[in-house]
Design a protein around this nucleic acid. Structure first.
Lengths: 228, 228
DNA sequence: TAGATTGTTAATCGATTAACAATC
DNA sequence: TAGATTGTTAATCGATTAACAATC
């Protein structure tokens, strides 16, 4: 585990940042990029960049740097951005609708093929050009269409049940925006994205700053948060 | 740095999960909770839980566990959830509006006092009960009201400029939902929350699963993602 | 007392950083 | 050649895990 990944999780999470920057660099016609430049743009030390790129088997040329085209392709392949990925989204509240319309997702190959909610008032509504379906249709639809990802944007109380249904529908990758730790079998990968929990860590920084101001304590630099 | 935190970043990020669960436990009238139970609910080993709770100076009783009330209070205090925090939000697109309406934020003491956009068509619109203001008013308003947090939900091209304005307005904590690494002075804390980047790591899992199925390679358990 | 669970130390693990010979 | 930058090794750092005496 962890090592079964082939790549350390922290490294994996930096790859999209590299990819972002390489795309930008390509857009302005630059053909070559060094680990130093890439690192500066993503706030990652150059040695770390080089190590990370070795995991995706991208080779640079000493004295020169990395070929930007080849690097972009390699990252796209490793991250699977070239493949189309189909997802179902449960929860047609504010967050769910925002996610369904998020333009960044399509660019990375994600297609949200169905939106579910249990509220009868929401069923039948259009979000973008997908219609909101009743949640009981989820299992069957996921199974029939071999859906690869489930996105959970329902309240805490419903989240576990929705997850169970996604799993029953054969889904193995879940992106969980609800504030709950899901119980899932070992072969299901869950990415938690509880925004309130993130807020709480920011809240800590604010509280800390306030305390320091009151105490007149020496101001320390906060660690620039690298991983995410 | 890192140590200047007083608490390791991974530990800090687990605290909100503990807090979530302690609240739930309190709601059902349970007065005491062990590191084992708390850990099971948050997918964190018991020893780790105990170590984390030491950072917030919460003491348990051997043979018994932790007092749930006192633990909740301690976490609230450490995370600053009790304090009111005022934020401005830049970007009144789908994501910005969803964030402005997100109910989990108010519960953690966050108040979004103003919403900004540069699109004249959006200015004057109401989102919840705050009106969308033109972005050029941001610096002055942030300064006048001593706003503590800036939330960035604008497109990549505008993000750096918005960040600069927030910093000019005296804001030291930025929650950045845009797909760009911001350039900020050392005393500004940035929490990046690029959803497309997160999607890319999920995409990697899906691609990996696909490859393994094709290759008939032995299925490995994905590491259950703990940190976030 | 017996059983449960703490706080803490020591051992392990894994990721980051520094350094440098090799290469363009 | 001189300068830049790679890939990789070794050193460092920091976080996780195991283990257990102390305590309720």
């Amino acid at each position: 585990m962890g090592k079964a990944l082939g790549i350390p999780l922290p490294s994996l999470r930096r790859l999209p940042l590299y990819y972002r920057h390489v795309r930008r660099v390509l857009d302005r016609g630059q053909e070559v990029i060094s680990s130093g430049e890439l690192g500066a743009a993503c706030a990652v030390p150059a040695a770390q960049v080089r190590k990370d790129l070795r995991y995706v088997r991208e080779y640079g040329r000493p004295g020169i740097g990395y070929n930007a085209h080849s690097l972009a392709r390699r990252l796209e392949e490793f991250l699977g951005l070239v493949n189309d990925k189909e997802a179902v989204l449960a929860g047609a509240g504010n967050l769910g609708r925002a996610l369904a319309n998020y333009p960044g997702f399509a660019r990375y190959g994600l297609r949200i093929v169905a939106l579910f909610d249990r509220d009868p008032a929401k069923i039948g509504q259009k979000v973008g050009d997908t219609e909101v379906l009743p949640i009981w249709k989820l299992v069957d639809l996921a199974r029939r269409l071999h859906i690869q990802m489930g996105i959970i944007a329902v309240p805490a109380e419903e989240a576990q049940s929705v997850a169970d249904q996604m799993i029953a529908g054969g889904i193995k990758v879940i992106w969980n925006f609800s504030p709950i730790t899901l119980n899932v079998p070992g072969d299901v990968y869950v990415k938690n994205q509880d925004l309130a929990a993130e807020l709480a860590t920011l809240s800590h920084w604010i509280a800390r700053r306030r305390r320091e101001e009151v105490d007149g304590e020496s101001r320390r630099e906060p660690a620039k948060e690298s991983e995410r």
